[in-house]
Amino acid sequence: MKTVKLFHSITLLLCAVSLSFGTLFIDLEEDLRGRWESDEDLTGEINALGGSLRKVISDSRGDRFIFFAQAELHNNLSEFMLHQAYGQIKGPMGKWNVSVGRVPLPWGLLTDWSPERMPYASPYRGSRLNTADNGILLDGVIGMADYGIALTQGYGMADIEEFPGPGLLTARVGITPFITGDLVVGLSLSHGTVAVSAHGHGMGHVHEEEQTAIGLDNTLYYGRGLVRFEGVVKRYDASWEQHVFANAEYALLPRLTIETAGQAAFLPHDEKGGSIYTGISLPIRTLTFRGGYEYETYHEDTHSMVLQLYRSFSTVR
């Protein structure tokens, strides 16, 4: 309830400011899914319905101030999730930017890609790494390097219980060695206490977990193909675990892409699990159809067929 009121306040503020000056960018999203599992009947749901507001205020030096909010109704409109809500001051040439609020955490592939809109399982649910948190973020680009460092509360998307909170430090440094931008390699670090749940979002039944994690990520563009990889080593509650994720996309035709993704987890007490997905993506105007087969082995062997209808609509005021 606290986050709902916060989002409503931010929305009204951005709309009011947009009437006076600056530019307001609005993006709306719909994510509908049908799923059949080997041990269940065919099910369908509104996976997510939401969007984002971005208010840009410029001066003689360009985009100077940015206010951003992103939220959605999740799981058949039963859960409200405030992903991000922050104000940002941009430095010259993007060498430094300071954001305050519920900020995106500078970690791994999250810096330019979100797995939440893909039909397969997100790697961050298994690794229990929060994707956003309340605090301050300093990031920017200097030459071939991009960097980010965030000092946050550790609550993720859960309601704030106290101030300043248990505390979480997250940082990443990325390198783009070629002028074409075809390859990006990053190193991430996270240390502190986070509020996690079975969903990996800091929602539902939440408990605190001491974490220290190191991650390596890379993104490679090769002709019609794209490959992403992320590996994480994490220590929590005196135990170690490792997570590996990779996905590849290849454009057979301008409107037909083959997508594959796989991940594996090596947990304490010799526990192992993983999943693999293969399917296709077909974008038509503002709609994207995705469908494929997923095999999971985390708790028990599960075979699934998934169909996703994703729609994104953007406008400027």
Results as ranks from 00 to 15, higher is better:
114 S>Q: 10
138 L>T: 09
67 F>W: 06
188 S>M: 06
211 Q>W: 00
134 N>C: 05
45 E>A: 12
240 W>H: 07
12 L>R: 13
150 A>W: 01
165 G>P: 09
315 T>I: 11
184 V>Y: 07
7 F>N: 13
146 D>F: 02
229 F>Q: 11
120 Y>F: 12
254 P>A: 08
236 Y>P: 00
233 V>H: 10
315 T>M: 15
229 F>P: 08
214 I>Y: 10
81 M>R: 13
21 F>I: 13
240 W>Y: 12
164 P>V: 08
261 A>C: 08
169 L>M: 11
267 L>K: 12
189 L>V: 11
197 S>K: 05
307 L>W: 03
247 N>G: 05
42 L>D: 01
51 G>L: 04
216 L>D: 03
21 F>P: 00
212 T>C: 05
111 T>R: 11
166 P>R: 08
273 G>I: 04
133 D>E: 10
252 L>D: 03
284 I>Y: 13
172 R>Y: 02
289 F>W: 13
271 E>C: 11
238 A>V: 13
263 Q>D: 06
202 G>Q: 01
153 Q>M: 14
115 P>D: 06
141 V>E: 10
77 L>H: 02
285 R>C: 10
67 F>R: 02
310 Y>H: 13
209 E>C: 05
37 E>Y: 00
224 R>Q: 12
116 E>V: 14
184 V>K: 10
17 V>D: 02
27 D>R: 15
141 V>F: 00
204 G>C: 08
22 G>I: 09
209 E>S: 13
300 E>S: 15
35 R>C: 04
129 L>R: 07
305 M>N: 03
317 R>F: 14
174 G>Q: 01
110 L>T: 06
190 S>C: 07
271 E>S: 11
166 P>S: 07
64 R>T: 15
4 V>R: 12
228 R>W: 01
101 G>Y: 04
232 V>C: 00
78 S>I: 08
49 L>I: 14
138 L>G: 07
107 W>N: 01
107 W>R: 06
233 V>E: 07
293 Y>P: 11
191 H>G: 07
267 L>F: 02
216 L>W: 05
294 E>H: 03
305 M>H: 02
29 E>F: 06
2 K>D: 15
67 F>D: 02
267 L>R: 13
114 S>D: 15
1 M>Y: 03
112 D>R: 14
151 L>P: 02
151 L>K: 08
267 L>C: 08
197 S>N: 07
15 C>P: 00
236 Y>G: 12
101 G>F: 01
94 G>W: 02
